[in-house]
Design a protein around this nucleic acid. Structure first.
Lengths: 164, 164
DNA sequence: GATTGATATGTTATAGTATAACAACTTCCA
DNA sequence: TGGAAGTTGTTATACTATAACATATCAATC
């Protein structure tokens, strides 16, 4: 059974998502002796500012809007840290980043990307992973990391008229 | 059962792959009234020149080595045509392109990418697709296009010593 | 075979994404 | 307190992709 731990694709008080994510991040970094500096924390908040994946340069713009006077490497470094600690994921097909819905667990995300509202939900269905591992193994391929990004329409957008 | 129609990940006479792919491409384009021009044909050959995905700018370099005096748009247009006609796939996680192993069939590829030799095989296992469609549907998401790119070690590279 | 509309290619410029390389600063512990 | 490790600043540049407009080629019709 797929595991969806958040409220994505449905209206909700998103501030709670952010708050919960930040608390989790602090906990995890503390546990792992990772230094969640102010910059990294702020980047994580920006990534979590919506359920739409956000690009590195958009993050940079936002930081600049807040008086930050930095350059791309700063953002990319923060993203790298957050990726390394499993706090965010990179969506390869969008060159963008999104908050991880269940950090801490070792996992490679499976993403459902709505073509209409552009929100992304993370689905971590062991059945999917298993199917892939099994199928790969049947031709002798040892699967390590899985990139799974599914495009389609979320339930909310399916209910809307087609002419947007 | 996964369907692997080619000889990837094993030594083989690759000229045959190229030849077969080109013949298929000609057939398919004829059938669909697509104009497989010399440039497009040459780009397709370059994409098929190995089982390693190739980047647009590498293609450009190679074309230039052959006396072609063009710019990126030419290459990207050829790639777009080939993608539209299902003759190649784009590997999102590599920003690169690879020949489609069974063009003509409607399908979204599932790719096995060897981290060591960098070859890519296309696996089109309906069981994997089904697992994803099913899992998505269970939370009301209508899956349309699937990006599946698996990193790991091919059977050949698994057999090699670890210190490469 | 000239006309014309559609398709394909050439050309220049620029947008968007990411990292290399080195300098300066902080943190933390020995 | 000194020094190593880790973090951030800064500049430059690499890599990937497309916009916009000009020109050329094709293919069907008159």
């Amino acid at each position: 059974m797929p595991k969806i731990t958040d409220q994505r694709f449905t209206p909700h008080d998103h501030r709670r998502c952010i708050k919960a994510a930040m608390e989790e991040a602090i906990r995890i970094c503390h546990e792992r002796n990772g230094r969640l500096t102010e910059q990294r924390k702020r980047v994580l908040e920006l990534v979590w500012s919506s359920h739409q994946p956000i690009g590195a340069y958009t993050i940079l713009e936002q930081l600049r809007g807040e008086g930050f006077n930095g350059a791309p490497p700063t953002v990319y470094r923060a993203l790298e840290f957050l990726l390394d600690h499993g706090l965010i994921h990179r969506i390869e097909s969008l060159n963008a980043y999104t908050g991880c819905s269940h950090p801490g667990d070792e996992h490679t995300g499976q993403f459902l990307i709505c073509s209409r509202c552009h929100e992304v939900a993370e689905l971590d269905d062991p059945a999917v992973s298993r199917a892939i591992t099994h199928s790969s193994a049947s031709i002798g391929f040892a699967a390590a990391h899985q990139v799974i990004e599914i495009r389609g329409l979320c339930s909310h957008c399916q209910a809307l008229p087609h002419d947007q």
